[in-house]
Amino acid sequence: MIHAATDEVLEHLWYAVEENRQVHSLGDLGADIDDASFRSAVYELVADNAVDSSLQLSDTGTQRAKRIVRRHRLAEVLFFEAMGTGLDDAESSACEMEHMLSDVVVDRVCTFLGHPPVCPHGKRIPGGDCCRLYSKQIEPLVMRVIDLPVGAVASIAFIAPKTLARLEKLAAFGIVPGSEIRLVARKPSCVIAAGATSIALEDEIGREIYVRLR
């Protein structure tokens, strides 16, 4: 819990820097921050050299705060955009998640989401190592089969169809997660090839098949 309080203080200090606000006391960070547990969190942060006595972030503090904000905002995107929850639910769950995710998991989530630049509120998501790599090799971890370059081969990561019947129909052709498929054409209709079988699909189904590039 103490740990969560330090995270919370760092997060709010980051917001203040982001919004160009001057911080002189804990009260400047928001009404719900100013209580005993947060005050002891500040002492702990000062002892760790993350924050100086006038409540300014040090370099290490900035790095820690950046990672927390990144986790928070990526979690928001994950819940809001990828899972389709409401913004309130996304936000409250993100508040919990920001304390738990390891950096490796966060980078995977970031890659999965295609390295989003902003959160659902429109605020910038601090970049991670994965994003710097991404600027060189422009492949997200998982993408819709219809977004593959024509001719590219990928393996199916998961299929998220609207109906079970669709899943069964694809399965009858042997198209299940793990199968290797190739995008043959995107227009005028989506055509994929699995082994020696070529199948024309509804575009909507092409958007429901998620693949991982080899």
């Binding site: 694809l170 070529s198 199948i199 024309a200 509804e202 909507e204």
Partner: peptide
């Protein structure tokens, strides 16, 4: 119904 059609060689 969904459009799912096998394309022969």
């Amino acid at each position: 119904a969904d459009f799912v059609l096998e394309i022969p060689p």
